[in-house]
Every structure is written in structure tokens, then in C-alpha cells.
Design a protein around this nucleic acid. Structure first.
Lengths: 229, 229
DNA sequence: ACAAATTTAGACACTCTTGTCTAATTCGTC
DNA sequence: GACGAATTAGACAAGAGTGTCTAAATTTGT
């Protein structure tokens, strides 16, 4: 009698797989509808799970929401630190290397599913859960920005850049590299890869016009415009 | 018949005054609670109006929301264009003048009540009303960004700046000037004035390191690093 | 002061959602 | 194959919110 109608998904694998599936679907729905607009039945349907299972796992709509944010924060942070590890400490072509770094950061941490969702949840529900998002602020920007700043400081110390304040430079790097994506980010969309590349390229070029030394032998051509002053 | 030149002086009671009060309170509540979480009774209470009056004026929760966004877009745009009119076309001290412009833009258009609310509504409900926010995109960034770019182009033509692409430069100017306010913006907060000034100052300095000519006599020191060629 | 228009408070029907409960079914594991 | 744990569908109570309606009170124009 019981006809298990699960058209797209695999049959229930295990206990943890179900938990993951729930948090995943919850993230999707919370982002699309907002906390108040999100519907537990919809989350359950999207996760291919009965409503009761959600309550068994998380107890409460609010607890589920907190679990979603914690999960996203953790995964995003891991991604960012993994990407920071690829920062070019000994650049061959500084411009190309920084563009590559910016692209990895955007594609793997900011424009991907987790990054988009976390950003949206912070924007929409940040004021309602001050302690939760204060935690994000400490764990996220509070740790990643200094880490990026340290890498820029190392480049400056190595003679590749002329930087006064590495913290300011790091924030400005991020601002420049994302300068052309702001509107898309606001509306919750995902920029196409060529848009990301365009923004990163323009951003890095301006960054290097401000902070670059013509030292780094390989990219002499790019610096020539600067030198033509 | 209703052609009265009446001196609609006080806020207390009037037909239009009530309409304004409703839209105002609705903006506050929609921003705080999101569309789904917003409660008509709460809006009515906050506006000092009965629930029925809201339905008389706007007919519908959704129509009320649209009225709020249209209202905010219009007022914000007016503010931005008014501020663009103060752009320094013939700068005395370029750095100081650009910092002043950035401060006016931030304080009067981005960090003020209307700007904060509009930004939040776009972020939270943008995906649910594609046509409404497409309209905003055209009327807002679609018109203000080129206007700012034109001003930068004029500065470049006047020999004050070395800019390749004025549109890119304009977006990067905004990105730099707000680089240190991103986290605060995300969480829906209002940065303190000294934070805004700090970000604007740092942003403009970097902008001028990238695009400035050492022409502008007053800020020679900052350009010296660049000039060390 | 009078009449028309507007606003108000409250009741109301209706829908939707949360979270609980139960009994049947399925899964994991031995 | 069998047993305990997890999952399921469905019904359910309780609460909240929207939008309508009405009769009374208030404001507004003349």
C-alpha cells in the first residue's frame, strides 16, 4: 500500500544523512522565504523527510535555524581558511597571482552556495539573533580579515607591495575585488564567472596601482602605464 | 472641487498625513520583521491608526509593501542626485574634497534611515518581487552610477585624475569608500560617524594613490611613494 | 451647525502554521 | 528472520494573522 514517492532522491541512507539533508533543505527554504515565511512542511518535503523527523532531530523551528547558521558559518570559514592558504607568498606574476587568489576566494567562499546563503541569512535575520551573529562576526571576519592582512603584510615585507596599514589594505582589496558585484550580491543573485573575473581583474589592477612597486620583474609591462606618469 | 490650497501644516490629522504615517511605520516594521513576519496590527499601532484605515488606503499587505519600496526608492534617488550635484568639479584640495563628497553620500543617502531601510528590503525581499527590484536597479544604480562616473570623467578630463574607465573607477570609488563598513551594513547596523570618516579617508587616499596625478599641490606627500619612480 | 466623508473599535470567518500525539511501517543490526 | 530504534502519515489542538463587515464616533467642508 505504502508507495514511497521520492522521485529524485535516494532512499533514506542513514541517521546522519537525514540530519544533513534536513539542515541543507532548511538553509534553502530559510534563505528563500525568510525565517517567518519558512514553512516546516516545505522544508520536510524538500528534504524528503516527514515533519516529525525534523522535530525529532532539532526540536524546534528556532533551534533548526540556529543549527543552519552554525553549519554554514563553519563550512564557510573552513573554505576561506583553505583559500587563504593558497595566497601567493612568493609571487611570480603578482597581478596574475592576486587575480587568481581573488577568483578562488569569490568562487569557493563568497559566490558559492554556502557563502550566498550565509550572507543572506546574516542580512535578513542578523538583527533578530544578535548573539548568534556576533559569534559569526568574531569567527568570520574577525579571524579571516586579519589572516588576509597578515599575508599582505608578508608581501609588503618581501618588497612586493608598499603598504602602510595591512588591515586597511586587506579590507580595501576585498572591496575593490567585489566592487562590480555589489548590486548582484544585494539582490541575492550569483554573478557569472566572467563577471567575477572582470571585477577581480579591475580590482587587482587598481590595487596594484595604489600599492604596487614596479619591483616584481615579471610584470613590468603592466607597471609601465604607471611609470608613464 | 477638492482644489484646496489649505496650509496642511500640522502632522496631527489629515488624510495625506495619515497615508504618510502608514507608509513610514510600514517601512519600519517590514524592515524589522521581514514581509512575512510583519503584522498589520503592529503597523497600525505604530502608525497610530486603526487597521481598517490601512486597508482603506492600500487595500492589501502586498500593495502596501510595494508602496513602501516605491516611496523609499524615490526619496533615496532624490537624495543621491542632490548629493551628486555637490561633486567637486573644480577641486581645491582634491583629497579633502573627495572625502567630503564620500561623507555626504554616506551620511545623507546610504547610512540614513531611508538608505538603510531600502537596502534591507532589497536584500530580504528582492528575490520575491523581481520586477519591482529590477525597477529599482534601473532607477537606482542604473542611473546614479553613470552620473558619478561622468563626474569622475570630468575630473580626469580636467587633468586631476588618470582614469582609464570612468565607470569602473566610480564603482571602485564606492567600494573603497565603504570597504570598512561592509560588516556593519550586512548586519543592518548604522556605523558611527567616526567610522564612516575613517573608511572614507582611507578609501579616498587609496583611490588617489591609484588614480591621482601628483599635480594637486596639497597632497604631494601622499603621492611621493608613487613618484619615487 | 449640518452633512458627507473618514476613521475607529471590535467581532468575525477563514486560512495557515506550529508543535504534539498515535499507530503503523520501515530500517539497521544482530 | 527478528528485535529495537527510527521514520512515517495523518489527525489534532492551539494560536496567530489576514481581510471583511458593521455600527458608532470623529473629522472636514460649507
Amino acid at each position: 500500500m505504502k508507495l514511497h514517492v521520492s522521485p529524485d532522491t535516494f532512499p533514506p541512507r542513514g541517521h546522519e544523512a537525514k540530519r544533513l539533508s534536513i539542515v541543507d533543505s532548511a538553509a534553502t527554504v530559510f534563505c528563500r522565504e525568510g525565517f517567518a515565511g519558512a514553512n516546516i512542511d516545505l522544508i520536510a518535503a524538500e528534504a524528503g523527510v516527514s515533519r516529525q523527523t525534523i522535530y525529532n532531530h532539532h526540536g524546534d523551528k528556532e533551534k533548526l535555524f540556529v543549527a543552519v547558521v552554525r553549519d554554514l558559518t563553519e563550512r564557510c570559514n573552513a573554505g576561506i581558511f583553505a583559500t587563504i592558504a593558497t595566497f601567493p607568498d612568493l609571487p611570480g606574476d603578482l597581478e596574475a597571482d592576486l587575480i587568481g587568489f581573488a577568483m578562488r576566494l569569490n568562487q569557493n567562499c563568497i559566490c558559492n552556495r554556502d557563502g550566498k546563503f550565509l550572507r543572506k541569512l546574516i542580512q535578513t535575520e542578523g538583527e533578530r539573533y544578535p548573539e548568534l551573529f556576533a559569534e559569526w562576526r568574531e569567527q568570520g571576519p574577525g579571524r579571516t580579515w586579519p589572516a588576509i592582512a597578515a599575508r599582505f603584510a608578508r608581501l609588503a615585507y618581501g618588497g612586493y607591495l608598499a603598504i602602510d596599514d595591512p588591515d586597511v589594505a586587506a579590507r580595501q582589496f576585498l572591496g575593490l575585488v567585489n566592487a562590480e558585484l555589489q548590486t548582484t550580491f544585494m539582490l541575492g543573485g550569483s554573478p557569472r564567472e566572467d563577471e567575477v573575473l572582470q571585477s577581480a581583474t579591475n580590482g587587482v589592477r587598481t590595487f596594484l596601482r595604489a600599492f604596487g612597486k614596479r619591483r616584481s620583474a615579471t610584470s613590468v609591462e603592466k607597471q609601465s602605464a604607471l611609470a608613464s606618469a
